[in-house]
Design a protein around this nucleic acid. Sequence first.
DNA 1: AACACGTGGAC
DNA 2: TGTCCAAGTGT
Length: 340
Amino acid sequence: MSASEDSIPGRLLDWYDRHARALPWRSPPGSPAPDPYRVWLSEVMLQQTTTAAVAPYYARFLERWPTVDALAAADDAEVMAAWAGLGYYSRARNLIAAARAVAARGGFPDSEGELRALPGVGIYIAAAVAAIAFGRRAVVVDANVERVVSRLFAISAPLPGVRGEIRRWTDAITPASRAGDFAQAMMDLGATICTPRDPRCLLCPISGDCAAREEGEPARYPVRAAKKAKPLRRGTAFWVERNGAVWLVRRPGAGLLGGMRALPDDGWSARGDGAGERPGDWRDAGVVRHGFTHFELELAVRASRSAEPVGPGEWWPVSDLEAAGLPTVFAKAAVRALAD
DNA sequence: AACACGTGGAC
DNA sequence: TGTCCAAGTGT
């Protein structure tokens, strides 16, 4: 390696060679670079999502669509249904669009700039794919890196405003070679040692360079701006059942749960409950609570066997509801309706 | 710059 | 039960 063993990247790479996590989308350190399709797919799934949550989805996607060409040829509805439960559904919509763009140009581009042009590929994924799949030197900054770097240099200004400074420090310690392994080493360090609470500094290969450890309270970094309170919204979902089938709709392509199958609802406007306005014989099937990123939802479930479905939709066999690919909030509502 | 955008696990 | 937060991106 070009980095000396006494440097921060040198010690980190040496640690990574011995302690890298074995993850389904990863090649062991020193082995040939993994397929860019696999790196890209995993990075998209891993946005704001834990490795444990991603693993089964990643396995299913790879089995069903082993190449970017296969994914590009897939039906939108099947991909959206396969994504159900993973959250942030715009990722799935962008995944399809990006796969088709890549297939059309005959393969993945190998530079950050071109990667960045793909839908759903931002500054982080472009850098990660360029470094991990194509061996480029790129500055990869995710939440792990933010935490490690903010501690290493005791950066006391709050996130998110301080991201530029963190990026410059990361650039300063990113080696010319093995930038992909370096990025993954930083992420492994953040995930297993330099953890949000109670970092295990005694096991850290760069604790001797860490300004936060020197100060004595590393867990106080990174500093974050105060977060806003989540408002509570109330709404109603409608379970209309007939001959063993339930009426499902597809949500509009953009916005919350965009493009996903769903139960019909009242829009969750603050005043709630338009159920009384819908003709038919309705029963109260209970309430489910669900937390979204920026609000909390209290969703009343109303069920009927006589109401007429409203607008476009489809009858879906209740016995095969799993295959409909409902987002978790509606899966909860379905369980509530069926338990009633 | 600030906000929209899901979900589940850890404590 | 509540809070934090995880391999971020788009607008």
